[in-house]
Amino acid sequence: MNVSFHSPAPRTAISGSKAHRQSKQHGLEDMELDGDHEDGANGSGVKASTLHVVTPGEVITNDTAFMRGHGTYIENEKVVSSVAGVVDRVNKLISVRPLHTRYTGEIGDVVVGRITEVAQKRWKVDVSARQDAILMLSSINLPGGVQRRKQESDELQMRSFFMEGDLVVAEVQAFFGDGAYSLHTRSLKYGKLRNGTFISVPPALVQRCKSHFHSLACGVDVILGLNGYIWVSAHVPQNLDEIDTELVYSNKNKEDITPRDRESIARVGNCIRALADEFIFINDTIISFAYEASLQYKLKDMNKKEIMHAIATEATTAVDNMKG
């Protein structure tokens, strides 16, 4: 059986990039090697254009050899799109990815969320998905020793860990039967968020990558939640060996955040907003470039449309130059 993997980094079809051209060729070879679906590739099959945009009700293919994925349904043995977006094809699986939509998670995703409710042995967390995610009391690190049994007293003082309105960074651990996400914060990377500001962007703009925790050169930490929620905060030096577990759930910001730090945080935040406004992928590289591009402007001017546009354009050109 032929298995081809699409390159994970830019997920959309990039007309010029090498990685995509390779995967595209691979995909086409794959089709031809199959032999029995040759006519599918040429005639009735999926169009080979780099950007295949479909709208609801549009027939993607009437070749019965294809399987339907997300964003499609089968009618009269045809694969029909149910959303407006870009067609993704992996071998025989066809799915349509809407570009402007809510977050759909996968296990292992790093998400930023806001506690909306404290319930029996669990918290409900808004992660901009179609339902609130659930953080069980048993899937957080309890203070006082990393490995400790959950006690009744913990249940009674759940609000001392996370209160309604608190922001947390967590990882998707599992799905419930109805599709709700179960989160966990059982690592010192995860937990309550302090010392910074919150920004929300379309989830499609944050891509899965090796790390979603970044420390920028300007002394600002950024957490890129895959659900489009982003946390920009003052840099806190991390030494994971000697973290006081009591402090993990503290509600106090650190004391020495200078006005300079605050300005950097606001500036990075505005840069992310400018990039999101232009619908550009957000990662640590482009944020750094946007930050440099923004230094020529005053902070208070950065929410003007034309300046946001200028910053975004300069950042994208800088990234292009770096790629060569």
Partner: peptide, 18 residues
């Protein structure tokens, strides 16, 4: 309506590939 939706989707898709 289809033209409106298609234009918007193509516009977003193009922006994301830059």
């Amino acid at each position: 309506m289809d033209k409106t939706i298609r234009d918007r989707a193509e516009d977003l898709a193009r922006k994301m590939t830059v």
